[in-house]
Simulated scan of single mutants.
Amino acid sequence: MTSAAQGAPGAPDSGTTALPGARVLLESGDIHRALTRIAHELLEANKGPHDLILLGIPTRGVPLAQRLARRIADADGAEVPTGSLDVTMYRDDLRRHPTRTLLPTELPPGGLDDRIVVLVDDVLYSGRTIRAALDAVSDLGRPRAVRLAVLVDRGHRELPIRADHVGKNLPTSSAERVSVLLAETDGRDAVLLSSPATGGAA
């Protein structure tokens, strides 16, 4: 994703910038703890790191996947391969939004076949980005299973998609905007909430 700001139903699962007057919902320490917990959940659900691959959805899903890999290494001592999965050309709403820059899809050596692929993203909203990611994965290989880990689930699903691992459930209205900021892309870690009164929705 390009960011994690989200607004009206039908909009892509992320926007581009945090808005002035936004309220801080999660700070750096909260994000750190959420990712640590997700890393331990992944190890427990998979009974270890074997055959795990973490694929981040650009933009912010990629550094989140890399952080999860580091936390798994800290907890288990194993290196879990990471990669990135651009889903732009698999989206069903391209005609409704400005042209997107294609970002690289980078798979770990050995590909996806018979591996446990964990899709990693910043915010789960309508589910359309994840549906596009599942289509992209099916074109790239045949994993044994595909799971989903997200930092924030804000609800308002338009498709029957559920995350297996969630850092924080944040009930929101469809008019509000959730913005995830990460040090790697934004210079700071935070999750912000903006309402129409503080700048409008995406």
Rank of each mutant, 00 (worst) to 15 (best):
T2E: 00
T2K: 00
A5C: 07
Q6P: 00
Q6H: 03
A11H: 00
P20Q: 13
R23T: 15
V24K: 08
L26T: 02
D30G: 10
I31K: 00
H32R: 10
R33F: 04
A34D: 02
L35W: 04
R37D: 08
I38S: 09
I38T: 06
E41P: 06
P49C: 07
H50F: 08
L54G: 11
I57V: 07
R60Q: 10
G61P: 06
R67V: 13
L68V: 12
R71E: 14
I72C: 11
A78D: 12
V80Y: 05
P81Q: 11
D93T: 13
R95K: 15
P104L: 06
T105G: 00
L112C: 09
D114S: 13
D114L: 10
I116Q: 12
V118W: 04
D121H: 11
D121S: 13
A133Y: 00
V137Q: 08
L140D: 06
G141E: 06
P143E: 05
R144Q: 15
A145D: 11
A145W: 07
A145M: 13
R147V: 10
L148C: 12
V152E: 02
R154W: 01
R154Y: 00
H156D: 00
E158A: 10
L159Q: 10
P160Y: 09
I161A: 03
D164H: 14
K168D: 03
K168N: 05
K168C: 07
N169M: 06
L170T: 14
L170F: 14
S174Y: 03
S179F: 07
L182S: 04
L182I: 04
A183G: 02
E184Y: 04
E184P: 04
T185L: 15
T185W: 05
G187C: 08
L192V: 12
S195T: 15
T198Q: 13
